[in-house]
């Protein structure tokens, strides 16, 4: 089997607060997995432990056969292969949409500017924003900014993209356009690990939903199974609650 990502027994504390207490899972190439759970459960921390934006206290992570968590690993080379989409976009505010998408290929991969521009325009096209190439982040709506940030991740041809609540900072009417882009990515076979409350998205494309609570994985399984016959009472309660709260945009 093509295991792309292996997460093994990740622990993380902030001071005395134990945020992650032994999280393990695997992803195959082309998988889309959705992580759900109450806030403060360590979902975002887990994503950050994967590409070492936050160092884990204990546990190991592999990307294919390379151990990310090994201190000898060149983390910049690994991060260049893992896209990260933030809740609040974090587009570079001094660069246009085009500049944002082009910067990593040129500065990290050393691609020629002309080639990177062509690539960046393709990626902007892919998220439906080629006409906004010259706009600065402040001139774009939240939904457009998030789509640019997805294009920015795509421009590095990542093996995996991590999404940290990509629609939580958006006005409700802008969520759909971002989810549409993510759904088409999932269908194209991109490997995606998504922290989200969007159950419509999960039902549409997730191979598996991972339910986390208090720093551990309580239950995981295909969406249909988790919705219809969860093994744990808490899973069912939580799914019911967020579907009611957030609805299903997709």
């Amino acid at each position: 089997m093509n295991t792309l990502l292996r997460v093994e027994d990740i622990h993380k504390c902030y001071g005395k607060e134990r945020v992650l207490t032994g999280v393990s899972f695997e992803m195959m190439k082309g998988d889309t997995k959705v992580i759900i759970g109450p806030s403060g459960t360590g979902k975002s921390t887990l994503l950050r432990c994967i590409n070492r934006l936050t160092p884990a206290d204990k546990g190991r992570v592999w990307l294919e056969d390379e151990e990310i968590t090994h201190t000898r690993t060149n983390i910049n080379r690994i991060r260049a292969q893992i896209g990260f989409v933030f809740q609040d976009f974090n587009l570079f505010s001094h660069l246009t949409a085009l500049g944002n998408v082009r910067i990593a290929p040129t500065k990290v991969k050393g691609m020629k500017k002309a080639e990177a521009t062509r690539l960046a325009m393709e990626e902007l096209e892919r998220v439906g924003l080629a006409d906004k190439a010259g706009a600065y982040p402040a001139e774009l709506s939240g939904g457009q900014q998030q789509r640019v940030s997805i294009a920015r991740a795509l421009a590095m041809s990542p093996k995996l993209i991590l999404f940290d609540e990509p629609t939580s900072a958006l006005d409700p009417e802008l969520i759909g356009e971002v989810l549409d882009v993510m759904i088409s990515l999932a269908k194209e076979g991109m490997t995606m690990l998504v922290v989200t409350h969007e159950m419509g998205f999960a039902r549409a494309v997730a191979d598996e939903i991972i339910f986390m609570e208090r720093g551990i994985i309580v239950e995981h399984g295909p969406p249909a199974q988790l919705f219809s016959s969860p093994k744990h009472r808490r899973t069912g309660e939580f799914l019911h609650k967020i579907t009611e709260l957030y609805g299903e945009t997709v």
Partner: peptide, 13 residues
């Protein structure tokens, strides 16, 4: 904003 640095680091800079 610290997010700018974080985004830059997350892409391998």
């Amino acid at each position: 904003p610290t997010g700018q640095m974080m985004a830059a680091r997350s892409m391998g800079m």
